[in-house]
Design a protein around this nucleic acid. Structure first.
Ligand code: ZN
Ligand code: ZN
Ligand code: ZN
Ligand code: ZN
Lengths: 162, 162
DNA sequence: GAGAGGAATGTTATAATGTTTCAAATTCGC
DNA sequence: GCGAATTTGAAACATTATAACATTCCTCTC
């Protein structure tokens, strides 16, 4: 299933991409969802790195493919991918990133490095439980939860001033 | 200090506003920050309800005052207010809300009702601790944390279908 | 293998949100 | 008062996201 390599460590990123695409195909097939060429290409572009991409970044990359797409094309593809849990939107960045827990029930927590821009998605049950608990205390019923932590990743925390 | 009335319960909201403004004046005075007329008015407008306001909503309200402001005026005021912890930005809504814990060290968690739009800010140490712990596990150093929970408040949870 | 119906995409325009830049005014310490 | 720093005004612009409607593509049925 999903790769668990930390984004800011050396790793075979081609494997990240390949795994993500394979997972996506399986997930969509299982649910009779159409992972069309455009959608798959957008997913692949999103996965080019562990840094979130803006919709217009994706658009520009599609243009380099020769695909002369307009904004709705990208937003529609991203909507689809989000719907099937293949990408997440990082609200604080207006950007999108591939889900590293696709296919599993999870509620992501995103660690965003201010220096290098990489984002690590964690599945943190302790955090989820604490949030559910705090919400329950005031009789609030959570539907979706976004936890976005901005800071410094282990690689950058030592080199902030260089 | 700050009022702790739940936003979706009946309460004397004029007191919310008055308290927020009084707190803001004290906080700014203590730090030699200039709570100018525009900034104070923006804070007051933000506090008109417990629903977050977009920057352009504030702009429109200023226009009703006869203050013919441009976007930067509002964004600058909001930046100032954020800097002194008087308002928070809700990234998932592109909107701003008055801080109910101004003056105290806290890291907010926002419960956003999808039905009525009210937002309750909680200071949840358990959540913060869990997040810090999860971040520490992967050697990530958090700088700022956003926890935005979308769901149904106690008043709306029972009336979803009406 | 037509043809109907729904899903997906193309296309154009526009809305909503946020920033840059430079000039003018205000405030503050002296 | 006077110079420096902060704050505000004003215009243009950049970025992000959506609306609306036409067209194409796929699938299912007959
Ligand atoms: Zn990778
Ligand atoms: Zn995920
Ligand atoms: Zn109130
Ligand atoms: Zn707060």
């Amino acid at each position: 299933m999903s790769v668990s390599a930390l984004p800011y460590r050396q790793h075979n990123h081609d494997a990240c991409i390949a795994d993500a695409l394979a997972d996506a195909r399986a997930i969509c097939q299982r649910q009779n969802a159409r992972l069309t060429a455009t959608r798959e290409r957008v997913l692949e572009l999103i996965w080019q790195s562990h840094r979130p991409l803006g919709a217009y970044d994706v658009l520009a990359m599609l243009a380099q493919d020769g695909h002369n797409a307009a904004p709705p094309t990208v937003y529609r593809a991203l909507d689809f991918l989000q719907q099937y849990g293949l990408v997440h939107r990082i609200a604080s960045l207006n950007a999108f990133i591939g889900c590293t827990h696709a296919g599993t029930r999870h509620q992501g927590m995103f660690l965003i490095c201010q220096q290098c821009g990489n984002v690590l998605e964690l599945s943190a049950p302790d955090v989820s439980d604490a949030i559910e608990g705090a919400a329950a205390d005031v009789h609030f019923r959570p539907d979706s939860v976004a936890v976005e932590v901005s800071g410094y990743c282990p690689r950058c925390v030592d080199h902030k001033d260089e």
